[in-house]
Design a protein around this nucleic acid. Structure first.
Lengths: 103, 103
DNA sequence: TTTAATAGTTCGGGAATATTGAACTATCCA
DNA sequence: TGGATAGTTCAATATTCCCGAACTATTAAA
């Protein structure tokens, strides 16, 4: 279990951020995180049965986009949105995307 | 030259829209269209030398996302943003994305 | 009317990405 | 200690993307 990479948002470009948001599974994960706050990895998963390795990859994409921060807590990996940092870098973007999401 | 497909925006999902926006070249194209109005295909192209076939593909993606409408005019293909329709489907999204774009 | 030039599309194959099963690490608990 | 749980990493497969080459359609020139 190596440490996770949480980039400074100055280094995140808009295309990377949009790409991270442009996936139904990741959108569902982010919506759930926005709703609930912090969640462990598998609880963030939507209804469909997503393999663990795929889910792990989705988290990596979300972290690389500066959307999510993950910390180890016991054997769980707890993730939460980097709301303020992301908002500071891309004002209004997350809120607009979430508002336009249809379940 | 077949006719272009311009979907009803009701059929366009948020991930498709975000995916279309999540590319530097397409973002530049859209920014230029937003600025100038209507443009032919090659004039929409950014500075870098993008191959014609690639550019053509980018337009197909933009059309599929409901962002752009293309009509044939002589031997040119004139494209313009579907501003109102896109805004009605995804309120605030295009404006927020364009506002967050750094040249 | 050919012939050439322009503007872009379509097709196909190689390059780049994404997905996922299997093996692994780390932690907790009995 | 051993087993169960939580998730990562790796490597192979599947999918998507990019771009050259060939094509269509229109305009212009010879």
């Amino acid at each position: 279990m190596s440490r996770f990479v949480h980039p400074d948002l100055k280094q995140v470009g808009l295309p990377v951020a949009l790409h991270a948001l442009a996936d139904p599974v990741r959108l569902a994960m982010i919506a759930k995180l926005a709703e609930v706050g912090s969640l462990n990895c598998s609880a963030t998963c939507p209804e469909q049965p997503i393999p663990k390795s795929t889910l792990s990859n989705h988290f990596k994409v979300l972290r690389a986009a500066g959307l999510v921060e993950t910390r180890a807590e016991g054997r769980e990996m707890i993730s939460h949105l980097r709301r303020d940092a992301f908002e500071a870098r891309f004002p209004g973007l997350l809120a607009t995307v979430l508002a336009n999401r249809t379940d």
